[in-house]
Write a protein that binds this DNA or RNA. Structure first.
Length: 483
DNA sequence: TGAAATGTTGGGGCG
DNA sequence: ACGCCCCAACATTTC
């Protein structure tokens, strides 16, 4: 076969050489392949990547650059505007093809459409691929031709289609690039991190990059998959996959995971409940991206119009409570343990995310966007679709959301899912000698330089207030009146 | 992937 | 032995 032309492979959040359709096709079709990463955070406003996310990205780009070097090429790193850089590079190398893997959040969809048009007009063959989802969001609709609004219906329909899923692509081992100098910026010049910031301690907990992703996946399959269905709810057990940041940056793909799960089932009888449960978690990730794609405005506003005005608390007292929530100083142990795990590691167990989110939006009555913004800045796995769905789910204002009146009781949750207080003690050393009543309900501490407050809110009272607010809005229209 | 209020049941203590 | 009450345990309803 005759390979012809020069391809640019534009890396974004697909920082891998395995199962990378854009890269594989470029290498298959073209004689010369030029890989580039263009840093352009402004183009993702108002959700430009947060600080924890940038810490991860820095490490991942270093890892990708090394992998690409081993494949005989060199990753070009540069800064936006993206279109200008692509145009310059295309001229400089005489590119004939441009390949990338699609992203589905509103800002990049709009930008990428412009880039496709512009680069096509310059005579390049532009081709994009689905490299981050099991199913293309536009390809799955319900009987009425509208997007699914309920997870179970969505996932049932998706599963039918997934029977014909194709296996993940093998790693690209050789990238044919001539050794010509390109205008590449040193990674440090992107200023993705500063040496003294809080997130540098994440180093202890994570190994970003494609290799780290596969190691974590193997570790999970061996240690945790056989118990996943039960243990995933217990935050002290560390029995979830911990793959969320890798998935966000495309260091491992849902196709790789799903494919492995499908074939794992053939070998181990009795494991199917665990496989199904983990598959469904991948399903929620799909549903989040699908939902954001079809409802792009939900990244910045409640899907349910009743939650637009009035219901949220923005008093000066609640501003202070928001800060206490961020610092993990609410006086409610399970909540503060979660917020401190987030601050220490850039990650929080999903059950605990639901608990802290419920406290913020229901008990404190603070707008879910405030919580979403804090998560956005502090999570290494910050992902617009997952973050939006998660917050709107808990706040009760999204697609297939929890009914508003479902208010989590943190004490009850701690009792059920952290019965021995192992999780709380891990992240709140103040509680290392606390008894079970204190672990659930909190206690005041003022000695030994350790200060820990009593709960900043009365859970029963604020629960009642939340239900009263719901009574006020529940009969309002779910959608604004057309004019 | 809720919690609290309310309803029902059944065992055991007791006169 | 029986009826009565209490209350834990479980089920259902409600928000």
């Amino acid at each position: 076969m005759n390979r012809q032309g020069t391809a640019i492979v534009w890396f974004r959040r697909d920082l891998r050489l395995c199962d990378n359709p854009a890269l594989s096709e470029a290498v298959r079709a073209c004689k010369i392949v030029i890989p580039i990463y263009i840093h352009a955070p402004d183009e993702e406003a108002p959700w430009s990547p947060g600080q924890a996310s940038n810490w991860w990205l820095h490490k991942s780009l270093a890892a990708l650059a090394e992998s690409i070097r081993q494949a005989g090429s060199e990753l070009i790193i540069t800064q936006g505007p993206t279109l200008e850089r692509l145009e310059e590079l295309a001229v400089k190398v005489g590119a004939t093809h441009l390949y990338w893997n699609r992203l589905y959040d509103p800002m990049t969809v709009t930008r990428d459409a412009l880039i496709k048009q512009s680069m096509s007009e310059r005579g390049l063959t532009c081709q994009s691929f689905n490299g981050s989802l099991l199913l293309e969001p536009s390809s799955l609709m319900n009987g009425q031709g509208t997007p699914y609004k309920v997870f179970t219906a969505f996932w049932r329909a998706a599963n039918k289609r997934l029977r014909e899923i194709t296996p993940p692509l093998p790693a690209v081992s050789k990238i044919p690039t001539p050794l010509t100098p390109f205008p590449s910026t040193p990674l440090v010049a992107l200023n993705l991190r500063t040496k003294t910031a809080w997130y540098n301690k994440f180093e202890t907990f994570w190994e970003p990059g494609e290799n780290g992703a596969h190691q974590q996946w193997e570790r999970f399959l061996f240690n945790s998959l056989p118990y996943y269905d039960e243990q995933r709810n217990y935050p002290a057990d560390e029995s979830t996959t911990s793959l969320s940041p890798y998935l966000h940056f495309g260091e491992i793909t849902p196709t790789q995971l799903y494919w492995t799960l499908q074939h794992e089932g053939d070998h181990s009888p009795g494991i199917s409940q665990h496989l199904d449960r983990l598959s469904a978690q991948l399903g929620w990730r799909e549903f989040a991206h699908y939902t954001l794609f079809h409802n792009p405005r939900t990244a910045i506003e409640s899907l349910d119009y009743r939650f637009t005005n009035g219901i949220w608390n923005s008093s000066s007292e609640s501003r202070e409570q928001l800060e206490q929530w961020k610092r993990g100083e609410t006086g409610i142990p399970i909540v503060d343990a979660g917020m401190r795990q987030l601050w220490q590691t850039g990650w929080m167990h999903n059950r605990v995310r639901m608990i802290v989110a419920s406290l913020l939006t229901k008990n404190l009555g603070i707008h879910w966007l405030e919580g979403a913004r804090w998560f956005w800045d502090t999570l290494v796995d910050a992902d617009l679709a997952n973050n939006t769905l998660g917050w709107q789910w808990t706040a009760g204002c999204g697609v297939d959301a929890a009914p508003y009146f479902r208010v989590f009781n943190p004490a009850r949750q701690a009792e059920r899912f952290d019965p021995a207080g192992r999780y709380i003690k891990t992240w709140l050393p103040e509680f290392s000698s606390a008894d079970s009543h204190e672990l659930i309900n909190g206690r005041q501490l003022t000695n030994n330089g350790l200060n820990y407050p009593l709960p900043i809110v009365d859970l029963q009272k604020t629960r009642k207030q939340a239900l009263e607010r719901w009574q006020q809005i529940k009969t309002m229209p779910k959608h604004p009146a057309p004019h």
